[in-house]
Design a protein around this nucleic acid. Sequence first.
DNA 1: TGGAAGGCTGGAAGCGCTTCCAGTTTCAGG
DNA 2: CCTGAAACTGGAAGCGCTTCCAGCCTTCCA
Lengths: 337, 337
Amino acid sequence: MAQGVPNRQSTLDEVAELAGVSRSVASRVLNNAPHVSRAKREAVARAVLQLGYVPNPTARALATRQTGAAALVVSGEDPSIFADPFFAQVIVGASAALEEAELHLMLCLAASDRGRRRVEQLLRSKGADGVMLMALREDDPLARMAEETEIPVVFGGRPVGLDPRWYVDVDNLGGARAATEYLISLGRTRVVTICGRLDTEVGRARYRGYQDAMLAAGLEPYPPEAGDFTESSGAAAMAALSARHPELDGVFTASDNMGAGALRTLRDAGRRVPADVAVIGFDDLAVARISDPPLTTVHQPVEGLGREMARMLVALINGQAPTPLILPTRLVTRASA
Amino acid sequence: MAQGVPNRQSTLDEVAELAGVSRSVASRVLNNAPHVSRAKREAVARAVLQLGYVPNPTARALATRQTGAAALVVSGEDPSIFADPFFAQVIVGASAALEEAELHLMLCLAASDRGRRRVEQLLRSKGADGVMLMALREDDPLARMAEETEIPVVFGGRPVGLDPRWYVDVDNLGGARAATEYLISLGRTRVVTICGRLDTEVGRARYRGYQDAMLAAGLEPYPPEAGDFTESSGAAAMAALSARHPELDGVFTASDNMGAGALRTLRDAGRRVPADVAVIGFDDLAVARISDPPLTTVHQPVEGLGREMARMLVALINGQAPTPLILPTRLVTRASA
DNA sequence: TGGAAGGCTGGAAGCGCTTCCAGTTTCAGG
DNA sequence: CCTGAAACTGGAAGCGCTTCCAGCCTTCCA
């Protein structure tokens, strides 16, 4: 039974003819639908093997009105922000979950105007069965449009200024609160924060968590110093804070990268960590383990975020009605606090 | 001219009817093909706007036999290897280049058997117009199959044991040689290497570069200590090498992560960098800038790799005959050497 | 042994778009 | 005012698959 490698792609018609059945029967066999006798089922299977037949996904998509693909769109102004390992992990999780549902993953980086227009087309033309949207900017037009479109959309994180129907988020507030509480429990009372961009929900939530913990402990929150989640911005913010509040003895930073930057500034300034200043980050990326000293941080289930987004989307595509999800975070203590 | 938001997706037939032309004419207008009078062109444009018409990509794909998508497949045994920021950068580059060609990006992580089978289907069913393949393992069945398939395939890096027709690679050999030469030029003569997995072309090439440089300088290359490109494997390898060759004064590691691990081991052992031991990494990832001391390393154009792969693929899809490409690397000197 | 129930089967009608082709206009040149 | 070329136009045939439906054939029970 030579597994033929035909020069031309063979079609279902050819399979049907070779098997001596009609195209409908052949189709039913391939989708293993009922109402086909055992004999014909086997005949078709043989023909498929003999011809090396592979169904044409496009034709199937046209007939079923299902593309067999889900899109992950990352919307932001700077394409290089995507180079963050964060997204790579989200993708790993999403990819695994989509694979279970036999869906392909389309990736759309909507940074340029052109990219955004293409995503818009995708949404309106139903070019995918569903979309996972991670909108980074405040008031993202794509986010608004996605909420209005017909096709299932799951948000990753809640965009500022929008209350999406379906989303998966990480407990940023709780994580930030826990981190700050931990610093306070260590006896630190002059705890500052290097917050992330406050035009993102992530930045806001993590800052709010800091505030909550401070107030709950009867401490006055310091005004935040903002960074953009990068190492260098963390270093700069730390310098500014040190100058403004030389008495500080604890820092909660809204990302590991900023935490690493803060460590660098403190080290350069000769301040010991954690003896003089305790530092806590957020994310639990590789950098937290590598930095010197290793960074105490808030772990967030990034791969889980991707996985749950994909699962929720699949549920939606299948006509179910899932509920929004907030994934837990957890403090990981290392040497820096 | 209300930009209608129809409840149902409108079709080309409806546009044609509203514009008072035949479907063929409407189609020609949309693809701006010739042989349409100015008047009808405008009538169709008006109708499109009025109905909020968006062409159905699936139907178009079926008719033209072009899917409008290119796939990036990463084939390896461990899905989490993809979480490496390396791939994220490749994706950024590829995505940008594909956008110019109006192609969508499909991402396939072929780690499980199931994933591999799906990629196989994709190749055989022409589910994409072309494929960029990054095969990590030696003797990857997918790589072999890809070379046999009809659809255009561009390799990212050359897989061991295969000499692909079209590929984009990075000058690993030259980079490794330059790094080692630099160590030697610094007066180091007892230079060891922590190489990557020798069942990958990357690992082999970088090791060969080290050997070449040592031999060219009249030095005896040390036997390599292998890691798997991760921080911890680098730390372990460094410990082993220190024990075996206490006299060593220079280390070339085949990745920044391993370099960071080596730094950690050296620091823990109380050996000063670069005073006692000079260390050089490879990749120029963020970790190289953050580590303590910052890592001298070999920069490779990762985003460029993705971009060039995509460009080559687009050329192939358009029937051109590009030539393989090897992108240059360059030494970035920081404090560790 | 008759008849109803129900499993099989294949014909045919799409899914929405492109594109070939033959027929119709238009228009410059004679 | 005629003729041929060039520009338009729309009908129709697909692209390869799914699925509805009507008809056929078993089968099994009364």
